[in-house]
């Protein structure tokens, strides 16, 4: 690949994904400034690895690098955010509507959801961001997060359940006040 060509090709592939890359990074590191640094670092890494990119799903390719860069950054700067391991249990995937408070969910507003989402452990948060915001398939998420599809499914289910619980408990507190 010629060098000038390489830069142009990289830009043609990676720049349209800039919004997705920033959104994922911002949700993972949860800080504007840190997200900017991480995205820049991720793009430089991606450019260095671009020779190894053999076409195909460019979103999965780039977002894998963005995610890895986020994890490296968190490891170096905020490692305790990564020290709460979660157990992937398939039997916990149910989604129950038995709680009468669930009806509150219909009055969800963006600010509330944003806060609840930010509180989720990173393992659930990242899957939800990729699925709900970036509209990635289970297969793509499993590639990016380097997880079996079954784990992606269970984390997605548990993440939704936890998110719902967070929202419900907040709203009940608010209504009590």
């Amino acid at each position: 690949m010629q060098e000038e060509n390489k830069t142009a090709q990289f830009e043609a592939i990676a720049l349209p994904l800039f919004g997705a890359a920033y959104n994922l990074a911002r949700w993972l590191v949860r800080d504007d400034h840190d997200a900017e640094d991480v995205v820049q670092e991720a793009y430089l890494r991606a450019f260095r690895f671009f020779g190894g990119y053999r076409g195909g799903d460019s979103r999965s390719w780039l977002l894998t690098i963005v995610r890895n860069t986020c994890y490296t950054w968190l490891q170096q700067n905020r490692s305790r955010e990564l020290t709460e391991p979660i157990e992937d249990k398939l039997d916990e995937v149910g989604f129950s509507a038995e709680n009468p408070e669930t009806r509150l969910l219909q009055t969800l507003d963006a600010q509330r959801v944003r806060q609840a989402l930010a509180e989720l452990p990173i393992e659930f948060r990242e899957i939800l961001i990729m699925r709900e915001m970036e509209d990635l398939s289970y297969k793509q998420i499993s590639t990016i997060a380097d997880l079996p599809i079954g784990t992606v499914m269970s984390r997605l289910a548990r993440g939704r359940k936890r998110l719902r619980e967070l929202l419900v408990s907040r709203m009940s507190k608010e209504s009590l006040n």
Binding site: F18, A35, Q40, L108, A110
Partner: peptide
Amino acid sequence: TELRSLHSAVSDAALRFEPPAALR
């Protein structure tokens, strides 16, 4: 139904973070 409303709440464009113009 709940799951769908949760899904649409999270996929709301307002929840996305847009990169600052200068960053690109």
